[in-house]
Design a protein around this nucleic acid. Structure first.
Lengths: 214, 214
DNA sequence: CGGACTATTGAGAGCTTTCAAGTTGAGTGG
DNA sequence: CCACTCAACTTGAAAGCTCTCAATAGTCCG
């Protein structure tokens, strides 16, 4: 079986130290996940790290009352899986067809030295999420989300949104309807354009960043 | 980047107490900070870690439009100030009179190995804040905040709140007036009692945790 | 061409914010 | 010890947002 590699997206983070660092300390196995398939489930035993080769992964969690929230999206070059102890407190699912390498940290002495920068990168993602969620109004949150997404996609004005609105809502802490409404408001104000449901073109960086105010 | 490490719970695990980890890689100097004095400012050069001996520290940040947000509170045993950049993106201030040790990471080869578990702890702390902020309604956020604070204070029912309402509001992403109002609502429902402004006694754990639903 | 899923849009209800008083409490000087 | 002063906290009312529920449109498959 063969699969098509989306080299367009791989370019995004290929320059990051992720690949090089991991080479020194891992046994690697590449798997391809179909859209909406599970990488690991909430409650399953943990132990590996995962690095995204291409595609997009959502990491999230269900609350005791059944609501869902998404703590992050991972694109090519991003590492996930350390948000857990012995058991996964979170789930991870492919948003679209994605290639993911499972990584077992080796016993080598220099393993921590190689993991450290990767973890710092993950901390950065968490920090950015905090900044997004801290926005009082939803348009701030969505604006910050779009800016960060663009930043992670080489600063392109045409931002890919592979995930459904419900994922975005669960990431931003608002309802999916509100996500849709705010996007419309941005469109009406000429800040963005939506060629299709899963892409957003940023037309007015100035006003978008004014909304972020991070 | 700044984050906090919850070493409070590490005391349980004799195998890797925080003190020992830090002892291996630090030069230590104790300073006492008066209430509302600055440990470091946003924009200042970074380079040290700090461990709280006693008191309480708030770590936060100002947005470009002048609003403030608080990313965390540090109590005795917590570590903060671990900057990945050359410059502090955050500020740190003593909430009340506090004793703080400045820690310079050494050049030893095993430094990364000692820092790694601390970073993992910091990831956990970030997750907790995310969980708090993700709550849609404010009573969820405040309930989660009180539960986590109690957990960090040996599970006592009488929780100390050394920080002003404005700090809590900036941490939870709501106005200080709303913090006050929600506290009143909890009091009226018999969930908590407030012996004085800076302490809260949890009377009904069941209902408080139902509100969290994390 | 259906059928199922996702996205958009609308209307009323419920919450939170902002602005603006009051009230309490800690610290200071008489 | 008491009154004064300032800052923090509480409370109220109106305005603005977001949520929920519900209906309509759009899209991707078979």
């Amino acid at each position: 079986m063969t699969f098509q590699v989306d080299t367009h997206r791989m370019g995004v983070n290929i320059a990051s130290p992720a690949g090089a660092s991991l080479a020194g300390l891992t046994h690697v196995a590449l798997s391809v996940y179909q859209a909406n398939s599970e990488v690991y489930g909430q409650g399953e035993p943990a132990g590996s790290l995962y690095i995204v080769e291409f595609g997009c992964v959502r990491v999230g969690r269900f609350t005791s009352d059944g609501r869902r929230y998404v703590v992050g999206f991972c694109f090519a070059g991003d590492v996930f899986g350390w948000e857990s102890d012995v058991v996964h407190d979170f789930f991870a699912e492919a948003v679209e067809i994605s290639g993911i390498r499972a990584v077992r940290p080796g016993r080598a002495n220099d393993a921590p030295a190689k993991l450290l920068p990767l973890m710092l990168k993950s901390l950065r993602r968490f920090e950015q999420h905090l900044i997004v969620l801290r926005g009082t109004r939803v348009d701030e949150r969505l604006a910050a989300f779009l800016c960060q997404l663009s930043e992670r996609q080489d600063g392109e004005s045409l931002v890919q949104l592979p995930m459904p609105r419900s994922d975005i809502g669960d990431y931003l802490g608002v309802s999916l309807e509100t996500v849709s409404r705010i996007l419309r408001r941005f469109k009406d104000r000429g800040i963005i354009r939506t060629p299709d449901t899963h892409s957003v073109e940023i037309l007015d960086w100035q006003r978008l960043q004014n909304l972020c105010s991070a």
